Simulated scan of single mutants.
Amino acid sequence: MAEGRPLDDVLAGASVDRDVFLLRPDYRAMLVAVDGLTPGRGDEASDTLLRAAEAAARVALDGTAVEEVPHVAAWREAYRAFGAKPQRTRNSLEALLRRAGDGLPRLNPLTDIYNAVSVLHQVPVGGEDLARYTGYPRLVRATGAEPFDTAAAGAPVVEHPDAGEVVWCDDAGVTCRRWNWRQARRTQLREDTTSALFIIDALDPMTTEALQAATDDLVTHLSLLGPEVRVARRLLAADAIASGGH
């Protein structure tokens, strides 16, 4: 996806397949496209945000097992619905909550911010480099033929999703497997990323108002990453089917 492409155009072409909504009619995806980001390494601000997220996780898990956190439990049900085993392939929110006690990873400002927002708002969040996209982001039930660029034992490898698996993809292949489990290497955020796409995934019992609040928090922190940061957002939800949208 070429640099400088209008953010509204990126979001207008994004879609969620009807078969995904048939699987989970309560699913909502908030897409946030950002450009004008100033590349850089993690700093005191991102570290402070991560420490706040770690503290919030300790409070959330005080007397509560990770799998009993309401939104985590909802995502476990969604994984089972398309044949994944949530004990083996954990949704990104559950994975972060389980790591928070020992300290969340420090990777790069963009990843650190969305990981912190994920934990603070108890919602799965993913981030991709828009400059490395081919076409538009789409959430579909996989055929099993789509390529997924990942690594095994430290070496690059191309895998394929299971047939029926819920995946985010573009014209070149899968960008994230099992809804929000593992992201591809090809589109991962880097320290030199200047344009990015963030996907915030919600199921009941998370309300759309809570999803909007998480989005506002993410945008607030992203807006501090450069003097000319531009942001666009779009909500994809099942009610768009009835009106003829994606």
Rank of each mutant, 00 (worst) to 15 (best):
M1K: 15
A2D: 13
R5Q: 13
L7F: 03
V16G: 04
V16Q: 00
D17R: 12
V20G: 10
L23M: 15
R24A: 15
M30F: 00
L31T: 07
V32D: 06
G40A: 08
G40I: 02
A45H: 08
D47N: 08
T48W: 15
L50S: 13
L50P: 04
R51W: 03
E54A: 15
A55Y: 10
A55G: 12
A56M: 13
A57I: 13
A57K: 10
R58F: 09
R58K: 15
V66L: 04
E68Q: 14
P70H: 13
H71C: 07
V72G: 05
A74N: 02
R76C: 06
A78S: 10
G83Y: 01
G83Q: 01
G83C: 02
K85C: 06
S92A: 11
L93F: 09
A95C: 08
L96D: 06
L97K: 05
L97Q: 08
G101M: 01
D102Y: 00
G103Y: 04
G103F: 01
R106C: 02
L107N: 06
P109M: 09
L110Y: 03
Y114N: 00
V117K: 13
S118P: 07
L120C: 08
V123Q: 01
V125S: 08
V125P: 07
E128R: 12
Y133G: 14
T134W: 00
G135S: 09
Y136D: 08
T143G: 14
G144Q: 09
P147I: 12
D149A: 10
D149H: 14
T150H: 00
T150L: 01
A152C: 03
A153S: 10
G154W: 10
P156V: 02
P156Y: 03
H160S: 00
D171Y: 07
D171M: 05
A172F: 06
V174S: 02
T175R: 14
W179L: 14
W179K: 07
N180D: 09
N180A: 09
Q183V: 12
A184C: 01
A184I: 04
R185I: 09
R186C: 12
S195G: 06
A196V: 05
F198N: 03
I199E: 09
I200K: 00
D201S: 12
D204K: 14
D204T: 14
T207V: 10
A213C: 06
A214G: 05
T215L: 02
T215D: 01
T215V: 03
D217H: 14
T220S: 01
G226K: 05
G226R: 08
E228F: 09
V229E: 03
V231C: 10
A232V: 00
A232M: 06
A232F: 08
A238L: 04
A240M: 04
A240W: 00
G245Y: 06
G245R: 11
